[in-house]
């Protein structure tokens, strides 16, 4: 299992488009991916759960990947969030 804590910096947070991009990209990995935020854990491959988590700009989150290709998945997730989803 690998994980990384980071801050969401793009102004819209996990709005529709970022959530779509994120869930789609994570869907390609066989490992389990979750986003820890505000004391709860969200399935990182599920756009519905990401929307429900309501993750805004400035949120402190932790990405946790567990299973096959976990490091690659984590790297891509971190890259996406840190680049602000190309906003």
């Amino acid at each position: 299992m690998v994980s990384k804590k980071l801050t969401v910096t793009n102004s819209q947070g996990f709005h529709m488009r970022p959530a779509m991009t994120f869930a789609n990209a994570m869907g390609k990995y066989p490992c389990e991916i979750s986003i820890k935020f505000n004391g709860s854990e969200t399935n990182g491959k599920s756009i519905m759960n990401i929307i429900a988590a309501c993750i805004k700009c400035g949120a402190e989150i932790e990405i946790v990947c567990d299973g096959e290709k976990e490091q690659e998945a984590l790297n891509e997730a971190v890259k996406m969030i840190e680049s602000g989803f190309g906003e």
Binding site: M20, N24, M48
Partner: peptide, 12 residues
């Protein structure tokens, strides 16, 4: 498109 993506949600 958002509707399509929502229905493609593997968890759902």
């Amino acid at each position: 498109t958002g509707h399509i993506v929502m229905m493609q949600d593997p968890y759902m």
